[in-house]
Design a protein around this nucleic acid. Structure first.
Lengths: 317, 317
DNA sequence: ACGTAGGGACAACCGATGGTTGTGGCTCGC
DNA sequence: GCGAGCCACAACCATCGGTTGTCCCTACGT
């Protein structure tokens, strides 16, 4: 492929061969086998070199594209200088959505999104520390437990919304306040005990006197959505930026919660020393996200954040 | 690469090998050599199969992208079912710009743009007839000379603009009428005698009593632009949609010509029988282009077009 | 018109590559 | 504790992809 592109650019197999450090015959055979494989003539041979046929012209940009893809794939994982790699909890989480938004407005940066498949924040910290990932979106953990070469910056707040089926009594509300949720059953399955989510919902339930049922295993979003769509009394909470898809006939509604908004705080864990240069831009982008509605309730362990890149010092005070 | 992707999707080398029709050992060696080449572990081997490492996760979308690129490259030129291939006179011509606009709004279609390197319209007709290209943008030729299995539809009109340097007496005009160009020297180099362009400028010169100098070889756009930028009395004509780039310090101006606008008519040549299905959408798109300003002057051999897909019959009447 | 230079293709050759079969080690589940 | 299932390693072999040597063709200079 590279031989083809260079030959097309230089107009001669000979010179392409010189540049590629092989003999002219080798390039000739490469092109010939490419032509045989595609069952198409790519060049017309002339006395002074080669010239692209129409098929060759059509093929050239595709070949360039493939080569660029290969190069990007290599730089993405070559140890040493690799692309920015960020861990998110799930590909549909608010973090992934925010990251995707960032990438869409900066498609030139090489960004790789991965998911550690474990919930334990210590694993994420260790991965950041080891350099396996450049940063990880996590809920706020106790900064004191962080190793000295890992730091944490406030990323953004994810305000919660109520997700209900059409038969639920709150289904037609435009917005809801936390006190309106009182006595309604809220089901958030799959929360591990003693995790940040469990503690978050605990505080939420006590502060607003809510019935939050965190028990039961999570059989997957599809099951949860099926149950919600049919039920007249079960609701759940989702982040306003979380990406949920459901069958069109489910007719689920997402209802913002305000006065106060319920903010789940998210942080970015990254190395203190020589972090990936692309991270700076990401953190800047996070600072420019639209802030959540005010007033907002936060769990006790979240300090009130300023939306700026300077948060990182404050979070360790 | 395909082995890697399938193995990642299926979670087992064994099953990937079955799907790919090779032995498990072959897939294992492929993955191993990929890992050796990249100097990275892509999978963690477990007792029940394989699982992507972080590097593997990062690599997977790139691998998919490469495979998609290869597949697209193949379909682009595989004889039989190949991507839509359209010939334009130059990559900066108005036709190319219009095609690019179309592609940007429909990025999912596989479109290849090529340039026959000859000006002779008969070559383009022959290429369309032979199926080497699916369509060719050309200036209007005599429909009677077309073979019976090739047809021509009106594509769009390209209104001319005057391109002048800052010292030219007309440089500060916002718009110009053809009569204002009288007695100014207009230089359009590189026009082959008896070509459609030559005939177009001939008619233009006689109808409006203009001094159009079509003599002299074309040493390339750069030379032309250099001369224009320095000269106080030479101007040239360009299509309003043509893409021209010049050094920032050249300070050239493009001045629309109106009352009447000078329209250069462009047509699309395509096969009458079983044309490429994607062509229909292109022709539709052409019909929705913003029409040139009115009133408009056209050469005698251009019938007044309607902007609709039905033009093709009219053009042969 | 002829000789020559430069570029591409073909042939013969050979090591590396990438597939095969055979087999062993490991982990999980009964 | 044992068998089933999966992956890795070893030995083997055909093919591939490179090399050198040569010929052919065309453009160009004399």
């Amino acid at each position: 492929m590279r031989s083809f592109v260079r030959a097309a650019e230089l107009g001669q197999l000979q010179r392409a061969a010189d540049e590629l450090g092989v003999t002219q015959q080798a390039v000739s055979k490469r092109i010939a086998s490419l032509e045989r494989e595609l069952d198409v003539r790519l060049f017309t041979r002339t006395a002074r070199g080669v010239e692209l046929t129409l098929d060759g012209q059509a093929f050239l940009p595709h070949a360039r594209n493939i080569i660029a893809g290969v190069d990007r794939a290599i730089t993405a994982i070559k140890p040493g200088s690799r692309a920015l790699r960020i861990d998110v909890l799930g590909l549909r989480s608010a973090q992934a959505v925010v990251l995707h938004d960032y990438w869409r407005s900066h498609p030139e940066i090489d960004l790789d999104v991965v998911t550690l498949r474990v919930n334990d924040p210590r694993v994420a910290v260790a991965a950041v520390q080891a350099g396996d990932i450049d940063a990880s979106f996590r809920s706020v953990t106790d900064p004191a437990t962080l190793p000295h070469d890992v730091r944490m910056v406030h990323a953004f707040d994810s305000p919660l919304e109520l997700l209900v089926g059409p038969r639920h009594p709150l289904a037609s509300a435009r917005t809801l306040t936390p006190s309106q949720l009182r006595r309604h059953r809220i089901w958030v399955p799959g929360i591990a005990p003693r995790s940040e989510w469990a503690e978050f919902y605990d505080q939420l339930a006590t502060d607003f006197d809510l019935r939050i049922d965190a028990a039961g295993p999570n059989f997957g979003n599809e099951v949860l959505l099926d149950i919600l769509a049919d039920s007249a009394d079960v609701a759940t909470l989702v982040g306003s930026r979380d990406r949920y898809v459901w069958p069109a006939n489910h007719d689920l509604r997402r209802i913002p919660i305000v006065n106060p908004a319920l903010s789940y705080p998210l942080s970015l864990i990254l190395r203190r020393e020589n972090p990936h240069p692309g991270l700076r831009a990401i953190i800047d982008h996070l600072g420019h996200l639209s802030p959540p509605p005010t007033p907002a309730w936060r769990p006790s362990w979240a300090t009130t954040p300023r939306h700026s890149g300077e948060d990182l010092d404050r979070t360790r005070r």
